[in-house]
């Protein structure tokens, strides 16, 4: 369909066309709904263990993934639902995994912190802080070894920066010119420890400079800014297989996990309320509406669609049976 003059002007102002705007909003909303429903299921006792919500940080996963190809890889820590969903995983199988059911991505044996989806190149949720940074470099090593032009995007928290493995990985990725893009989601806290109380250098992107790695900071609440910065990094990395470090300035609106009430002692209610004014979904929605790229009707349809998909996911997870007892002993080793 031919674009109207107004649509064209709006797209130019926003920097993206209606189709992409819809997708970005939809992808962020779907993550938000997924997390809200997961929280609900947790309070109902349907999800156990630790549950770390991604609410507030959606623009990072969605912006970054929007510039990736299907054959690129992503890897993350335990706050990984958003990254896995953005990479294209099926919310039904993700939710079933959180519920510990047989149709879960990992057959119910991984749980919320260990989502893996080979079919979309998602290399997992890893729950030892810092440990997946070398794994990301290793995946990049394999890509380079096979002379492919895919890249690995590795998401991690500010807490991992104090770990030795952050520094080992940056050094090795730079030394060996590995096609990996490290994205630090600086939400200012590792559990209750603020970056000021953990890091001698709180400008995390600057650590990259020491290793001769291209490093940038981006507003992690602005999906288009993330898209632009990560897009630049991916293009360069694809071309010359060298790593990048991106620090995304973001914030988690909820507690560290479901066991940590949102307005806990280590940060003030005022701070949380102030940060919620930077809600990445609201910001993008308003901008898209204002630019005339999306209409109110578009937004309503997208919201409904996202909610429906997640409701389906919950129903699917609820209906999925528990894994059979024999599965306790399967997948410990790969048998040939």
């Amino acid at each position: 369909m031919a674009k109207t003059m107004a649509e064209r002007k709006g797209s130019a102002a926003l920097g993206v066309d209606a189709e992409l705007a819809k997708r970005l909003l939809y992808d962020m909303l779907r993550i938000r709904r997924f997390e809200e429903k997961a929280a609900e299921a947790y309070t109902l006792g349907k999800i156990g263990g630790f549950l770390h919500l991604y609410i507030g940080q959606e623009a990072v996963a969605v912006g970054a993934t929007s510039v990736l190809r299907g054959d690129d890889y992503a890897i993350s820590a335990y706050r990984e639902h958003g990254h896995c969903l953005a990479k294209g995983s099926d919310p039904k199988r993700m939710m079933a995994e959180l519920f510990g059911r047989r149709d879960g991505l990992s057959k119910g044996k991984g749980g919320s912190m260990h989502l893996f989806d080979r079919s979309v190149g998602f290399l997992g949720g890893h729950a030892i802080v810092g440990a997946h940074l070398p794994l990301a470099a290793g995946a990049a090593f394999a890509i380079k070894y096979e002379a492919r032009d895919a890249v690995v995007v590795c998401y991690f928290g500010d807490g991992a920066v104090a770990q030795g493995e952050f520094h080992e990985s940056l050094n090795l990725a730079a030394l060996w010119k590995l096609p990996v893009i490290y994205i630090c989601e600086n939400n200012r806290y590792a559990m209750g420890t603020s970056t000021e109380r953990a890091l001698a250098q709180t400008q995390i992107w600057k650590f990259g400079q020491t290793y001769g790695i291209r490093s940038e900071k981006v507003d992690g609440m602005d999906v288009l800014a993330v898209r632009e910065v990560v897009g630049r990094a991916v293009a360069r990395t694809r071309q010359d297989t060298t790593p990048s470090l991106i620090e995304a300035d973001t914030y988690r609106f909820r507690g560290h996990s479901m066991r940590d009430p949102a307005g806990a002692v280590y940060r003030t209610k005022e701070e949380v309320e102030r940060e919620k004014q930077r809600d990445p979904i609201v910001i993008f929605r308003e901008r898209a509406l204002k630019a005339g790229v999306l209409t109110e009707a578009d937004v309503r349809a997208i919201e409904k669609d996202a909610s429906d998909r997640i409701d389906e996911a919950v129903a699917f997870a609820d209906a999925s049976p528990e894994p059979p007892p024999e599965w306790l002993f399967t997948d410990i080793y790969k048998e040939d």
Partner: peptide
């Protein structure tokens, strides 16, 4: 830790 992790990540991709 770094190069063992790299070996593991590379093994995940074959």
């Amino acid at each position: 830790s770094g190069f063992t992790g790299i070996g593991i990540g590379a093994a995940m991709l074959g």
